[in-house]
């Protein structure tokens, strides 16, 4: 039960965690993240890394689509920019991973700004299609600019390294990916405590009024694009280090749709929702795989049906959440929390 949490200062009132209970649970969660790789088997570790990457990318797309209201079908393309940047720099320069990841984010942000430039004239779904065009061009560049991207064969890269330590195992990658994911989610949370985040939301809710109230639309739309694609770039860079190979097919259009689906299923314009959505959507194929494996002894054909079933479940989740739970998993989570916040004194 949460009562009597009156605050003495505005600082305390605007803190992210406003009660000791919340701080306690969050500390417990961080501890669990830390202990997880020590207990988990290889498969769970692999999943943990995948979820971490997905959380970063989904948070990025959430900033753009969920908070600023600019729908983007280019997320996979931006991730590709990050992935190729990391691959190229690690192959040609041998820079350590913090530098390559930063470069990946920055280059993706630059591309994001370029893609966002039409956003002042082009609105709504037309903008979505502009981002679609961008992802077509990016895919073309990945496939055709062979001297840099290695063409259809792509690039293979060395494991990430820093101060002589190489991160060749999933176990070690976990300690890059997950802390970075936590950090980047917090950074996003911070943005929405300041005027920049408010400007984003204002643009989403009523762009014209926002402009009259003093928000430079182009500037903030581009900022949102830059921030979002920075996140995508870092996620793409981690993806490259994780799989140690990038090809044009590593970042297909369906990946952009995957991330949009994660944002929607999780809850648009809700950072917690983005995290839940990313985890949920990443784990669904895995659950389906387990199910298929369990069914194969009885139905030898089961593996054939897995990929189409996955398509159907993806589609059904998108449609179902939009129709029945437009605020996504985050809303479900809040309902559960509300239930327990008064428990056991329920009326």
């Amino acid at each position: 039960m949460r009562i009597g949490d009156a605050k003495q200062t505005y600082e305390a009132d605007e803190a992210i965690w406003t009660s000791p209970t919340q701080k306690f649970w969050f500390a417990l969660f961080l501890l669990a993240l830390l202990v997880f790789p020590l207990m988990a088997n290889a498969y769970l570790l692999y999943l943990g890394c995948l979820v971490g990457i997905a959380v970063i990318s989904t948070t990025g797309l959430n900033i753009l689509t969920g908070f600023t209201g600019l729908i983007s079908l280019g997320q996979a393309g931006f991730m590709g920019v990050g992935g190729y940047t990391v691959a190229w720099f690690s192959l040609n320069t041998g820079l350590p991973f913090p530098v390559t990841l930063l470069l990946a984010g920055l280059l993706a942000a630059a591309v994001g700004i370029l893609v966002g430039l039409p956003s002042l004239r082009v609105k709504g779904l037309y903008l979505a299609i502009a981002t679609l065009a961008a992802s077509v061009f990016l895919h073309f560049i990945f496939a055709e600019w062979e001297s840099v991207t290695g063409g259809m064969g792509g690039l293979s890269l060395e494991p990430a390294h820093l101060f002589g330590v190489t991160f060749q195992s999933d176990f070690r990658m976990y300690f890059i990916i997950v802390p970075l994911a936590v950090l980047m989610v917090f950074a996003a949370r911070n943005v929405f405590r300041t005027r920049i985040g408010r400007a984003f939301i204002a643009i989403r809710d009523r762009d014209i009024s926002a402009e009259i109230l003093g928000i430079d639309l182009l500037r903030y739309k581009l900022m949102s694009f830059a921030l979002s694609s920075f996140y995508a770039g870092v996620a793409g860079g981690l993806f490259a280090y994780f799989y140690r190979v990038v090809t044009p097919e590593s970042f297909p259009l369906s990946m952009s749709i995957f991330y949009l689906a994660a944002v929607i299923v999780g809850g648009m314009g809700n950072l917690l929702g983005g995290i839940l959505g990313a985890a949920f959507m990443t784990l669904i194929p895995e659950i389906l795989k387990l199910l298929t494996a369990a069914l194969t002894p009885f139905y030898p054909n089961a593996p054939v049906f897995m990929s189409p079933m996955l398509e159907i479940i993806f589609g059904a989740l998108i449609v179902g959440f939009l129709i029945f739970e437009p605020h996504g998993l985050a809303e479900i989570w809040h309902r559960i929390r509300r239930f327990f916040s008064l428990w056991p004194f329920r009326n």
């Binding site: 943005v191 005027r195 109230l213 003093g214 928000i215 921030l227």
Partner: peptide
């Protein structure tokens, strides 16, 4: 608070 936007200065990095 959004109304005060034009009178504020903080940039993206310090916001993050």
């Amino acid at each position: 608070k959004l109304g005060a936007h034009v009178h504020m200065k903080s940039g993206l990095l310090s916001s993050l």
